[in-house]
Design a protein around this nucleic acid. Sequence first.
RNA 1: GGGCGUGUGGCCUAGUGGACAGGGCGGAAGGUUCCUAACCUUCAGAUCGCGGGUUCGACCCCCGCCACGCCCGCCA
Length: 606
Amino acid sequence: MYLQFRDDVEAALTAALDALDLPTDDLGVEDPPEGVDAVLASSAAFRLAGEVGAPPPEVAGQIADEIDADEHDLLAAATAQGPYVNFLPSDAYYEGTVEAAQQADFGHLEPTGEEVVVEHTSANPTGPVHVGRARNPIVGDAVARVLSFAGHDVDRHYYVNDAGRQMAVFTWAYETFDEDDLDSPPERDKPDYDLVRYYRKGNAVLESGDPDEVEAAEDEIQAIMQGLEAGDEETYERVQEVVDTVLGGMRESLDRLPAEFDEFVKETRFLRDGSADDVVSRMKELDAAVYEEEAWQLELDEYGIDKNLVFLRSDGTTLYATRDLAHHEWKFENYDRAVTVLGEDHELQASQMNATLDLLGHDVDRLRQVVYSYVNLPEGKMSTRAGTGIDLDDLLDEAVARAREEVETRLDDRIRDDDLTDEDVSRIAEQVGIGAVRYDIVAKQPTKAITFEWDRALDFEAQSAPYVQYVHARCCGILEEAGVDPREAQRASDASGETASTASAAVAEGFDASLLETEAERDLVEVIGRFPAVVEEAAEELQPHIVATYTREIAETFNTFYRECPVLADDVDDDLRDARLALVAAAKHAVGNSLQVLGVAAPRSM
RNA sequence: GGGCGUGUGGCCUAGUGGACAGGGCGGAAGGUUCCUAACCUUCAGAUCGCGGGUUCGACCCCCGCCACGCCCGCCA
């Protein structure tokens, strides 16, 4: 409805400017500040003042006068307020918004038919996922969700680095050492925690072991790398055993977020199917290709990159970057667009790859990156190899434990008589704890640096997931109290909008939105109405934190409504009650679905 | 040294060149016979890193500087 309103405003504005014989290329449509009684406004008068030869307020007046609101159903009036033209919504707009938000799939945009692959996380399978990288799966999953909401056909990929030196080291170490050689038992009974000990042991030996031992190890590591490059099946099997085992453990941790993948794309695939060789041969033909110091390189000066990209070693083997090029050509073949979520330390690489793909004749506009900076500890970086850092599992466990504590202390002075079961307590602890972690990360611009602190990451008050989740629970509480099955309602918002719930449909029947006339109610309708536009913008910009900002706003607005507008009180007239109930259902969908975009659970009770 | 990114009250954070820079935490003071107080209300607190410039108008664009982070391997 908001999007339609925006179309109407643009049409009306264009027509008015045409009638006044003014240029229509800059409509200046924007969101008015808080306290202004309009859904949209235009600042075009500022720029047109010179042309008209009159001060902006006068121009705004002329434009407003030229607009006939009656021509547009959703528009009540266009009024000049100082230099601005404000567009006020009609009753039909409020009615339509509340109506539209009754649908469980509220906020999903029209299918675009565009196939998009979102690659994220792609951490080397060397050990447990730690918090330093946790931004990647959380931001990546949210990006995938927001694109999906925006109507795209989304696949999520994890690119598995199984062909590099790290995995060769790991394989050698795993095959060489025994449990007896290791210093300590695994920190958890999980394969990634088990095997990372071999990786650490191997690296320690390589760094400061007996020279003969190190030399023998290097020979073995080289043999493994050469074997992979040559497509030797036995070597491949040996490495895969380590890769798949560790990856299995990492997946379990990622699933908790949840961050799930449609495909784990292995680097060795592009070695085995010949596509890495193929891209190498085409690169050699490029004008920018040079053969220096026995290695094939690419000069990328024309892209402002003064560092040559080596794409074939002097021993004839490929590099990570080469294989990644083959990987991206594969993406281009199979998808319309590709989004990669990567750490800031990979930016140069990404720009080199972009430049190379461009040289190879690809349309690099189809490729976009979302860059985030790593989460550090107050004492410094986290490292799998060194074993410094906080494991994601530990963070999530602690989050859930603290949330549980919180639920239990609140149990005593609970007003609501809803008899939370032990299962409810566990469910809430899980939803709130993990939600808080996700929200804390997804709500910030990914380029901002984060220093990890327990208390900051696990604050359950104010601008946090629980604040928003609580609003959802309040909505569910009211609906339940009114006789609407909360599980129906819940399922509706979980089902990615396949079917509207019967419960919500029942609420939608016969309400009169014009009864919603207090400021608190109108504000709430207006904020709910913006949700599709928020999804649209977040998808366009690949910035899920925009949705997080929105959830805070709608939560705040709902809380004001909640305080000022009783729904089920005895002295509330039946018609008003129905209208408000519809509004609550609308809010529930807007809040629930915006949380869903972020991958944060929407609890039906807290 | 070069490239990229970040810099908003004590702390964290939002902010398409346009209507008084929004929130939150922490601090101070209040609110629950009423649909969940993980809530709400009020107060104090800002030279938007610094200096220039463009513009009718700059946190936002341009130039210079400072601080911090990341990168600059025939590693991944």
